[in-house]
């Protein structure tokens, strides 16, 4: 099955480095300290941040820093295929773990000892690239909650379909393509905070793929900043002085 059109464009008409339509909205929930809805292609992910609050279970309390409690989960109706089972599965447990590592890197956890910060990522509709969408949204939700961070992280995937490297794979390209590399970076330091890879790739392809990701991250970052600016546009800075 061909995954690229004869003119080299992708089945949905995108060029190899084009992102799907991306919309980020900050502050969409009332009770959470911070929240964000990301709509990226058909993906819809809602991120919410609670805390810093007391640690539960208590014996995990770290006297030196806050714990990050990251939870990535897919709703049972989120996929285009069959009804999924609700609750965590092996895949979501693994993704929650590596997502937690991302936020442990950027959040100034040492400023909130003996506490816990919850980062919930609910995938409501999925279409490939949900983990990078979720982490991109959660980063905005953390900023919305006023949690001090070293950087606003963002992510996107790169992969090879029909022998060509393409950015921001949808579900079809992910399933039928030859590889998938979801990456989360810190745009400020250019460090890879989440890096996973599946499929056969040469070193050169990994290198080129990462350059495509760094390029795409500029666009994503801009949308994140804009979402936060929109949320806080009515705040009168005069009150803060």
């Amino acid at each position: 099955m061909a995954l690229l059109n004869k003119d080299g464009s992708r089945l949905d008409g995108r060029g190899v480095t084009d992102l799907r339509p991306l919309k980020i909205t900050a502050g969409v929930l009332n009770r959470a300290a911070g929240s964000c809805l990301i709509e990226w292609g058909r993906n819809k992910v809602l991120a919410a941040v609670y805390g810093p609050h007391e640690v539960f279970p208590k014996h995990l309390t770290n006297p030196r820093r806050a714990l990050i409690n990251a939870r990535y989960i897919m709703a049972p109706f989120s996929s285009q295929e069959e009804h999924g089972r609700s609750g965590p599965n092996r895949r979501s447990i693994e993704i929650s773990k590596v997502a937690r590592h991302v936020f442990e890197n950027v959040v100034f956890t040492e400023r909130f000892p003996k506490t816990m910060i919850d980062v919930h990522m609910e995938v409501l509709q999925s279409d490939g690239g949900t983990r990078v969408s979720a982490i991109t949204a959660a980063s905005v939700a953390l900023a919305d909650a006023g949690i001090p961070m070293r950087d606003l992280v963002c992510g996107v995937s790169v992969g090879r379909v029909d022998g060509k490297l393409v950015v921001d794979l949808d579900k079809y390209e992910d399933n039928l393509g030859e590889s998938d590399v979801p990456v989360v970076i810190s745009p400020r330091t250019k460090e890879l905070l989440l890096f996973q890879l599946d499929g056969l790739l040469s070193k050169k392809e990994v290198s080129e793929g990462l350059d495509m990701i760094f390029e795409a991250a500029n666009v994503i970052r801009e949308k994140q900043v804009q979402a936060l600016a929109d949320k806080f546009k009515d705040v009168d800075s005069g009150d803060l002085q």
């Binding site: 590592h101 890197n105 250019k190 890096f195 990994v206």
Partner: peptide, 21 residues
């Protein structure tokens, strides 16, 4: 035969592109 087949970064620290290469 020299392909990268899978990768997993874990833990708090980040890696630079050069380090990965």
């Amino acid at each position: 035969d020299g392909f990268v087949c899978s990768a997993q970064k874990s833990g708090k620290a980040g890696f630079s592109k050069q380090e990965l290469m």
